[in-house]
């Protein structure tokens, strides 16, 4: 009895290892039709001459690189790119440092201090407040504080990420045994040294998740720049696309070249870091 069960088990196991070609075919076709086709279209239109638009999806008769040059100049791409990059990078770095620090202090002291416990619930409950709810007063307040610029919005991003990141970090820190810290304290380290020398390096996987989520958020955000950044010199890439949408008029080739310019950096990052991005996003949600 025992034996027969084992043998059928083995057989089934073998069958399992065979490639399911039907499902593969369906998934490949769907990926081509629905995910890759729109991207292909974007690329093709961006490369075409306006006269070549009769059959939109055909490969360009000759490639018109000037589309990119014109879109580059028209939307003032380098400036907008620098703004976006500044916001994104500074946000990621400071978010990782400040938010993990706060989350660490809160998590380690929650059990013995009412204040820290209160702070924990304060930040977590703030997750329920959507941005739209505080948008109107925030716009007034931010401009009163002269924060309606690249630097100001970066600070706001760092602060606004706090609820989510406290939640993420805190879950991770709970799993780190306090023995490590105590050992470091015995060796004469103070709290800051304990954090930066012991805890901070251990939290690397969570840093990766937080970095990826913050990066995606700030790079693709549209609403906050829309209401805060009115000075054209301060605008981000996403906002610039919206602002210039009307000026592209029916010059679709220029418009799509401009879209592609915005999408390219993120596509390049994705190609190189996809594994890490996917695992980072997963652990951010599932943790």
């Amino acid at each position: 009895m025992e034996l027969t069960k084992k043998s059928t088990h083995l057989k089934l196991g073998k069958a399992k290892h065979q490639v399911n070609w039907t499902v593969t075919a369906i998934l490949v076709v769907l990926a081509i039709c629905f995910i890759l086709a729109p991207i292909y279209m974007t690329v093709v239109i961006a490369l075409k001459d306006p006269s070549d638009m009769v059959n939109v999806l055909s490969w360009p008769k000759h490639i018109r690189w000037e589309n990119f040059a014109e879109a580059w100049k028209m939307t003032d791409f380098p400036l907008k790119f620098r703004n976006t990059l500044f916001i994104t990078v500074v946000n990621v770095i400071f978010t990782i440092i400040t938010n993990s620090l706060a989350a660490y202090a809160i998590t380690r002291n929650r059990k013995r201090s009412k204040l820290f416990n209160l702070l924990y619930y304060y930040f977590i409950s703030a997750m329920f407040i959507p941005f739209n709810v505080l948008m109107l007063p925030l716009v007034k307040q931010a401009s009163a504080f002269h924060m309606d610029n690249v630097l100001g919005i970066t600070v706001l991003y760092i602060i606004f990420g706090l609820p989510m990141n406290t939640f993420l970090y805190s879950g991770f820190i709970k799993g780190i045994p306090t023995a490590l810290e105590e050992a470091a304290i015995i060796d004469g380290a103070n709290s800051w040294q304990v954090f930066f020398k012991v805890i901070f390096p251990i939290m690397k996987p969570m840093h990766a998740t937080v970095a990826i989520l913050s990066f995606m958020w700030t790079w693709n955000d549209f609403l906050m720049p829309l209401v805060l950044l009115s000075d054209p010199n301060q605008q981000t890439l996403q906002l610039a696309q919206y602002v210039f949408q009307g000026q592209f008029s029916t010059q679709y080739n220029l418009a799509f070249a401009s879209y592609l310019l915005v999408l390219l950096p993120i596509l390049i990052i994705y190609v190189f870091f996809q594994k890490w991005i996917i695992s980072g996003v997963t652990s951010g949600a599932v943790k």
Partner: peptide, 19 residues
């Protein structure tokens, strides 16, 4: 990641100066 961050930080600091 740290490599990427270092590069990005460098570019961003250039950007900061530029703007």
């Amino acid at each position: 990641l740290s490599c990427l961050l270092a590069i990005l930080l460098f570019v961003a600091s250039l950007a900061g100066c530029g703007s």
